[in-house]
Amino acid sequence: MAFALRVSGTTKNGEEVQIEPSWWNINELRNTYDFTEELDYYLDCYLYVDKQTLQEIMKSQEKYRRKESFKVDYWMEENQRTESELDHFVANLEKDSTIKIWIYEWESGLG
């Protein structure tokens, strides 16, 4: 079973944004926050947070971006781009915004 993560929300300009920070540690997030789980063949976990909590999560997950497995050129470039997108997203959120963090299971073909 493989999982991925997506952060989504709407900026103060009405732009719908979806970002997938690949370095975020899904296990740590699920153990730290109270995600709502849905099982419909695949497992989906949802967490709705405010802007401040999103910033706290971003800060707590930064240590994973620096892991050895992400020091390959492709991942360094991809993660830098994603980090910039996250920063831009947060900068353009209303103070009272609700952000969705969605952890979803997908068919990897490995198991």
Rank of each mutant, 00 (worst) to 15 (best):
M1H: 11
A2Y: 06
F3N: 05
V7M: 00
S8V: 01
G9D: 12
N13E: 14
N13Y: 15
V17P: 10
V17S: 07
Q18S: 15
P21Q: 11
W23A: 13
W24Q: 02
N25H: 13
N27M: 08
R30N: 12
N31E: 14
T32G: 01
T32R: 15
Y33R: 07
Y33E: 07
T36A: 03
Y41I: 11
Y42M: 03
Y46D: 13
L47P: 00
Y48K: 10
V49S: 11
V49R: 14
V49F: 12
D50R: 05
Q55A: 04
Q55E: 05
E56K: 08
I57Y: 09
I57T: 05
M58W: 01
M58R: 05
Q61T: 02
K63Q: 12
Y64P: 00
R65K: 14
S69T: 06
Y74C: 00
W75V: 05
R81V: 10
T82Y: 09
T82M: 06
E83A: 11
S84G: 08
S84M: 10
H88P: 00
F89V: 01
N92M: 01
L93S: 14
S97V: 01
S97W: 02
S97E: 10
T98S: 12
K100T: 13
I101V: 12
E107Q: 12
G109T: 10
G109V: 07
L110Q: 13
G111T: 13
